[in-house]
Computed example of a mutant assay.
Amino acid sequence: MSLVINHNLMAMNANRNLGSAYNSLGVSTRRLSSGLRVGTAADDAAGLAIRELMRADVKTLNQGIRNANDAISMIQTADGALGVIDEKLIRMKELATQAATGTYNSDQRLIIDSEYQAMASEITRIANATDFNGIHLLNGNLSGANSAHNGNGLTSTGPVKVHFGSGNDSAEDYYYVSINTSTASALGVGLAANNSISTQALAQASLDKLNNAIISKDKIRANLGALQNRLENTITNLSVQAENVQASESRISDVDVATEMTEFTKNQILTQAAVAMLGQANGMPRMAMQLIGG
């Protein structure tokens, strides 16, 4: 290399190497301080795209878990109310058995029937009053017998749609919770169903109706129990999915601290060396001045 004064090529070369090392040092510093290997699209364009999709899936799966837990709470609310209705039906059957015997007179049966009808009214009140977050559960609004789910309006109608997946596939991402009507008339007991125990014959006939009512109520509770178990299994599966997707996202996005610290140290040494050599190169033109002066 010739000794010239118009251009300091060694300084230019040292400056270029310094810029490269300093930029690499900045990248390592950003990665170590943020914990992310992919901080910008320039770091890994394809990896960034995959990471963002995975992040969306993780958020969606975690929300799906919350949705399923909310549905379990709703089912437990309905089942708790049906447990109270169960107590009323058992008491009504006890009263019907009492009125069916011949040792009571008509006035006494009317008194027994008064309590019987009060129990039926309470069943209807419980069915109409039981709600979860404003959604009535036992009054027939969620029954799938007469209508399907319709979510086109501001207020959905029909069975409750529990959405837990990241897509919109009915076979994978959601299913419905349907709860049949549990009022006294729907169960076939009480005055609303033309049912009374005011006479011995009516009391005997009521025993069959009460058996059917208890069976109908048990079917509703059994269906709710099966749905709760299904939702709990869904939550377990969603949790495993979210964990594995999060692990995959981490492998793409997160920085390997040990590897990056090695890069940081290397770039730090290169930067320091480049600064030292740039200082030396900037002093080279003075050698030409010595020749001119001589």
Rank of each mutant, 00 (worst) to 15 (best):
S239G: 15
G134Q: 12
N67F: 02
Y175Q: 10
L227M: 08
N211D: 15
L224H: 11
P159D: 11
V255Y: 06
D86T: 12
Q76K: 13
N229C: 01
T97V: 08
R125E: 08
N195L: 02
E172L: 11
K219M: 05
F164C: 04
A100H: 06
T265S: 15
I72D: 15
I85P: 14
I85Y: 06
I214Y: 07
L187T: 11
N223Q: 15
I252R: 10
A145W: 04
S198M: 05
L110M: 09
S166L: 00
N17I: 00
T259F: 03
L278Q: 12
S73C: 03
V160M: 12
N105M: 06
I214S: 15
L238Q: 14
N133P: 00
L210E: 09
G279C: 02
L9G: 03
T234R: 14
H136C: 01
M10F: 02
T29V: 07
Q246M: 04
Q272I: 00
G80H: 08
N13A: 03
I112W: 13
I50T: 10
N15C: 00
L36Q: 15
M277L: 07
H149S: 05
A96P: 03
T262R: 11
N146Q: 14
M74H: 11
I215F: 10
T97R: 09
M261S: 14
D254A: 13
G39E: 13
K217D: 13
K93Y: 00
N244Q: 13
K93Q: 10
A45M: 05
A258V: 05
E115P: 10
F132R: 09
N139F: 00
V58E: 12
N146A: 14
N180S: 09
I111H: 12
Q63R: 09
A193N: 04
I112M: 15
R221H: 07
